[in-house]
Simulated assay, not measured.
Amino acid sequence: MSSSFVDALASAQAQLYRYGGTFLIVAGDLGGIFNLIMFLQPSLRWNPCSAYFLAYAGSNLIYINFSMILTSLREGFHVDPSVQSLGFCRLRVYMYYVFTVLPTTLLIMVTIDRTFISLLTYRNIREMNRHIMPVVNEQPTSVEHRMKVKDQQLIVMLLSQVLVTIVCIIPFTGYRMYSQITQNQPKAAVRQSIESFVQASSVFVNYIPACINFYVYTWTTRTFRNQVKRVLIKLFQC
């Protein structure tokens, strides 16, 4: 019974990366390429926040096509190119840690940037209101209104991605904590298999934010969605 259960877990783990991993890699590559195209468009490029999104998209593409592909090959197809070369093994470890940390760091940086600028703007407006007489019936121009709307929607995109990242990193963080707490405990074969499956699953979930951010942006914000439509129309008209 325990042997068949262990085999079933090993098979499920392989299937997860063989099919789920392949799907995420393809979806992530397509979405990442579209992200680069979108944030290079003049309508989005003007915002300082877009530079972070552009760097975030680029680092995620490298993360997907290096770390995730190698992990999927190892877990799903039992192929590990790093065992053939010590140099490649070291490069894999280095790239894994750099591009695991870099996208999250960029996300933190853009969050701090948006928060700081928003607070600074609010403070400046309050200071101006204390010294300047209000102008009756003053209305913002259409250009100012569009810029404000786009800025707000970029913030919505940011918050949505932060939420997705937090949700997806919780299983991996929880497993790492459990692993550290129980590392010196004796474990039966079944327990080791369960832990291996949970670890592989948590790593898989941890890859999801890098692969779906384009779809999160498209779903959550009208500005980004409309820009995607315009780009697709141009592509099909060529």
Rank of each mutant, 00 (worst) to 15 (best):
147 M>P: 00
161 Q>K: 13
144 E>I: 01
226 N>L: 08
192 Q>C: 11
105 T>R: 02
164 V>T: 01
38 M>S: 14
80 D>P: 07
94 Y>E: 13
124 N>M: 10
67 S>E: 05
41 Q>F: 01
61 L>R: 04
170 I>M: 13
137 N>Q: 13
77 F>G: 01
219 W>G: 07
31 G>E: 00
110 V>R: 00
208 I>E: 04
55 A>E: 00
56 Y>K: 13
227 Q>R: 07
122 Y>H: 12
183 Q>T: 07
75 E>R: 02
186 P>W: 01
142 S>I: 06
75 E>C: 00
135 V>K: 12
130 R>M: 13
94 Y>D: 14
94 Y>V: 15
24 L>E: 05
201 S>Q: 02
37 I>P: 02
174 G>W: 11
19 Y>M: 08
136 V>G: 06
8 A>T: 13
213 N>Q: 06
211 C>G: 07
102 L>D: 02
205 V>L: 15
180 Q>H: 11
60 N>T: 03
206 N>Y: 15
43 S>N: 09
196 S>M: 09
188 A>E: 11
39 F>Q: 03
43 S>V: 10
220 T>M: 15
60 N>K: 04
42 P>N: 05
86 L>E: 15
215 Y>I: 09
203 V>G: 04
213 N>P: 00
154 L>S: 02
148 K>R: 05
133 M>W: 08
55 A>W: 06
32 G>S: 04
138 E>C: 10
22 T>H: 09
234 K>N: 09
124 N>E: 12
41 Q>A: 05
159 L>S: 13
98 V>R: 03
88 F>M: 11
57 A>Q: 03
58 G>L: 01
153 Q>F: 00
216 V>N: 00
8 A>K: 14
220 T>A: 14
58 G>W: 01
46 W>R: 08
98 V>A: 14
140 P>W: 06
207 Y>S: 13
168 C>L: 09
233 I>V: 09
123 R>C: 09
234 K>C: 10
6 V>A: 03
180 Q>G: 08
68 M>F: 15
95 M>Y: 09
77 F>L: 11
163 L>V: 10
190 V>Q: 12
108 I>T: 10
134 P>E: 11
64 I>G: 04
209 P>Q: 01
76 G>D: 02
236 F>T: 15
53 F>C: 02
63 Y>A: 15
70 L>W: 10
54 L>T: 13
172 F>S: 07
111 T>I: 03
50 S>H: 03
176 R>Y: 06
85 S>P: 03
149 V>L: 12
67 S>I: 00
67 S>R: 03
27 A>L: 14
143 V>S: 14
32 G>W: 05
170 I>P: 05
233 I>Q: 08
172 F>Y: 13
220 T>D: 07
174 G>D: 08
220 T>S: 14
38 M>P: 00
144 E>A: 12
237 Q>N: 15
178 Y>T: 10
183 Q>E: 06
139 Q>S: 14
201 S>K: 03
13 Q>V: 02
156 V>A: 10
127 E>F: 11
214 F>R: 01
126 R>Y: 05
86 L>G: 12
143 V>K: 11
185 Q>G: 00
76 G>L: 01
64 I>D: 10
219 W>M: 12
145 H>N: 07
195 E>V: 09
98 V>M: 13
172 F>N: 11
194 I>T: 12
210 A>P: 07
5 F>T: 12
48 P>T: 07
98 V>D: 07
84 Q>V: 02
